[in-house]
Amino acid sequence: MYGMGILKGLGITIKHFFATYTDEIRYGLRKYTKAVDNFQIRQGPETKGIFTSMYPDEKIAVPERFRFVPFLVVNDDDHPDAPGADWCTACGICAKVCPPQCIWIVRASDPNTGRPVPRPDEFYIDIDICMNCGFCMEFCPFDAIKMDHDYELASYDRTTVHIHDHERLIKPFSYWKSIAPTTATEEAEARGGWEHIDVIKERKKREAAAARAAAAAQPAAAPAPQASTAAETPAAADVAAPVAEAVADAPAPVVDEAEEERKKAERLAKREAALARKKAKQEGGDN
């Protein structure tokens, strides 16, 4: 019969209309409470249709890998040795890999010798150009630049606030741990601890040297100094357990790969730095 198709279609529309209410009745006032897992169910694949999230009273939290504009990781304020120290070593890989070239870095240099120091003097990101691609985060060998989850950045004037400088960009490491715990754990596991990679490397070197010295001096008492080192660095002991867990969870090849990738990136960074030095020297000769 002519018109049956239309009627059938309208029937489906009306079904959708009522479905909203049946689900509403199912959840009832629970909808307005915070504690229950209703949000999880309502936004999940099992519900019929989709539910409106009542932004700004009810925001859909973004997943861990979510990327918005980048930020720089610094040590926490309560860090025992170097509170607020930059993780960034100004190696420049992020500035080089950035597709729209929105990252500007000034590498710090020693005021006396003029030689570069692994620390950024200035750091700028033009968020009017940034395309949120996440390459800077992906290729940073020091886990120092990360993509933020804070998308509430609307402003009335872009000329004053849309070039983020170093001060605006830095956020403590604990923030990164809080927004992306899984990724942060994976990375820490790849580095070998929650510290900055250079700190860890140095500690390992020290430990190795100490172990060697101890072994040379007193081969029998080898385990003792090790225990004391662990006690000396509470931060390392603190993370030992979760890291161990992560190791148990994570499949072996991935770990190796991450490690390898990091090493490679490091090598690359070194080579880049050497190249840059060479280039600078050459140009100095030219002029």
């Binding site: 949000f39 009273d57 925001k59 861990e64 927004i179």
Partner: peptide, 23 residues
């Protein structure tokens, strides 16, 4: 590809009124 598909589709509450999902 960039990264393996995640173990869980999971979000963290970082802002005021953030509601979390975890599948």
């Amino acid at each position: 590809v960039f990264k393996d598909i995640p173990e869980r589709i999971k979000s963290m509450a970082t802002m005021v009124n953030d509601r979390v999902r975890d599948y």
